[in-house]
Amino acid sequence: MIRLVHRLGGVALLAMLFATPASATATLACVGVDDHQVHVTLTLGSVPVLAVVNATIETPSGTYAMLPGDGHTEIIVGQAFGTPDGLSVDFADPNVQDILVTLRTLQAYRDRQAAHVGILAIGDRDVYAVTCES
């Protein structure tokens, strides 16, 4: 019995290691320029490419989040791309049938601080200018 528990523990540990896409190392927090009810929070991973580990987007028309829960629309990362000049993320529904949220940012660096500006689009109905901090 102890051998079985030990073996299952090892399998569970391996599953956790391979199921974890990236460890979180940075947060990008954005707020609407003209509408302060607009908030975007992205948790980014530590892999060589842009890895969005978690996201929450709040707008007057609804809340979108990657974690399951009540009161919001569930989203997944459809695609994400980062460059030294900014990032682009498209969030889709869990079935990847529609792009629900799009975030595009431009960034500039001075010393060790970055300034981000961008556009947040909710489907084809709402567009917001955002400023972000990382």
Rank of each mutant, 00 (worst) to 15 (best):
M1F: 06
R3M: 05
L4C: 08
R7I: 11
R7V: 12
L8G: 00
L8W: 12
G10N: 13
V11D: 06
L14P: 00
L14V: 06
A15P: 09
L17Y: 06
A19P: 04
A22D: 05
A22G: 05
A24W: 09
T25K: 13
A26S: 11
A26L: 13
L28G: 03
C30S: 04
G32A: 05
V33F: 08
D34G: 02
H36Y: 07
Q37W: 05
Q37T: 04
V40A: 02
L42Y: 12
L42E: 01
L42G: 00
T43I: 10
G45A: 10
V49C: 03
N54P: 02
A55S: 13
A55V: 10
T56F: 10
T56C: 06
I57A: 02
I57Q: 01
I57C: 04
E58A: 13
T59R: 06
P60R: 10
Y64P: 00
Y64Q: 01
L67M: 08
L67G: 04
P68L: 14
D70Q: 10
G71E: 11
G71D: 13
G71S: 12
H72T: 08
E74Q: 15
E74D: 02
I75L: 04
I75N: 02
V77Y: 15
G78D: 14
A80L: 09
F81M: 05
P84Q: 15
P84L: 15
G86V: 04
L87P: 00
V89A: 01
D90I: 03
D90K: 11
D93C: 04
D93I: 03
V96P: 00
V96E: 08
D98Y: 13
V101T: 02
V101N: 01
T102V: 11
R104G: 01
R104F: 09
R104D: 07
T105Y: 12
Y109Q: 10
Y109N: 08
D111G: 07
R112K: 13
R112P: 02
R112W: 06
Q113L: 08
A115E: 08
H116Q: 04
H116F: 14
H116G: 00
V117T: 10
G118Q: 05
L120G: 01
L120R: 03
I122R: 00
G123R: 07
D124F: 12
D124G: 14
D126K: 02
Y128F: 15
Y128P: 00
A129F: 13
A129S: 11
T131H: 14
C132A: 11
E133Y: 04
E133N: 08
